[in-house]
Structures are given as structure tokens and as C-alpha cells.
Simulated assay, not measured.
Amino acid sequence: MTIVVLSSLLLIGLILLLAEVLFVPGTTVVGIFGLAVSLAGVAYAFLSFEPVIAWWITAVAVILNLAAIVYGFSSGVWNRFSLKTAITGGAFDGRTDRLQIGMPGKTTSDLKPIGKASFEDVVYEVKSENGFIPVETEVTIIKIENNIILVK
């Protein structure tokens, strides 16, 4: 009966540690619980067996747990869960920095009241002050606020 309890504790601890490393990485709750169960198994070994046998059981448990951790880190499972790109854009990312109030341009689409206009050969989305403006009409920037270009 003692061997069944000891092997159950050590095996459950090892399975929980492997589950942490392979299936639910980053939560640490399962891994900490697995290490606690393994330590309980080692403590049970020292209470139930001679010290020499308990030290052998401890050595085997440590080797198996370290092997599980090393395998988990070398298996590449962490690469599936890690972020590989970063968000670089934003609401105010400098698109309108080259524009100035009073700058002339020409519409490249109808403004109804939103459309496209070209300023210095770069096309921007603009909003008209007075509603509809047909395509190929000369416009002037009257306001730039929060990446909204207001033209007339």
C-alpha cells in the first residue's frame, strides 16, 4: 500500500508538471501544484522508508521532474503561445504631419462629404466643409484635427 501511495503522488506530480509545460503554459498554478504533489511524495518517502531508499526515490523524482521541464522548454511548445508581431499603428500615427492649413490640393473622388483628395501627389481621405464637391475640384485645407482633414 505504501508503494501505491508513493508512486501515485510522484506520478500525479509529474503528470501535472508535464501538463503545465505542454498544455497550459504560463498559468503556473498547475505547475506549482504538480511540484507540491511531488514534494509531498518525497516527504512521504522519507516518512515511510529507510533514509537511503528515500534519497534514491528523491533523486529519481528530481531527475524525472527536471527532464519534464527541460523537455517542455526544448519541445518548442512555447513558440505556439508567444506573440511574434507587434502593433505599430495607431489612431494618430503621423499621417497628416506633412500637411498644413491653407495647403492646396485636388479631389481624386467625389466628396459626399467624405472622399479622397491629393496634396503634393499623396492621396488622403478628406471631409468637405460644405457637403458635395465633385471630382477634380481644387480644394484647400482649412482644418486638421485627429487625422481628419477638413477642406473647402
Results as ranks from 00 to 15, higher is better:
26 G>V: 00
2 T>I: 15
120 E>W: 14
143 K>L: 04
73 F>Q: 09
19 A>Y: 09
13 G>V: 11
152 K>C: 06
54 A>T: 11
117 A>S: 02
62 V>A: 15
69 I>Q: 04
65 N>I: 05
102 G>F: 04
17 L>A: 02
124 Y>S: 00
64 L>Y: 15
136 E>G: 03
103 M>Y: 01
36 A>Q: 00
71 Y>N: 09
137 T>S: 13
49 F>C: 10
149 I>E: 11
74 S>D: 08
143 K>T: 01
80 R>M: 03
38 S>W: 07
31 G>K: 08
125 E>L: 08
87 I>D: 05
104 P>K: 04
65 N>M: 08
150 L>A: 00
128 S>G: 12
14 L>C: 07
11 L>F: 10
38 S>Q: 09
97 D>W: 00
40 A>S: 08
140 T>V: 02
129 E>A: 14
117 A>D: 03
11 L>C: 11
149 I>Y: 13
41 G>Q: 10
12 I>W: 09
45 A>Q: 02
110 D>A: 04
108 T>L: 10
59 A>V: 10
13 G>M: 02
75 S>H: 13
120 E>P: 09
99 L>R: 06
57 I>N: 08
18 L>F: 14
4 V>F: 14
129 E>S: 09
40 A>P: 00
76 G>V: 07
112 K>D: 01
142 I>K: 13
13 G>T: 03
2 T>N: 12
60 V>G: 15
6 L>W: 03
22 L>T: 09
60 V>K: 01
27 T>S: 11
86 A>P: 13
100 Q>W: 04
79 N>I: 03
49 F>S: 15
77 V>N: 00
66 L>A: 06
58 T>G: 15
70 V>M: 15
140 T>Q: 08
11 L>E: 05
74 S>V: 15
119 F>G: 06
127 K>H: 01
120 E>G: 04
23 F>R: 02
84 K>E: 05
87 I>F: 11
147 N>L: 06
48 S>D: 13
85 T>V: 11
126 V>K: 02
119 F>R: 04
120 E>A: 15
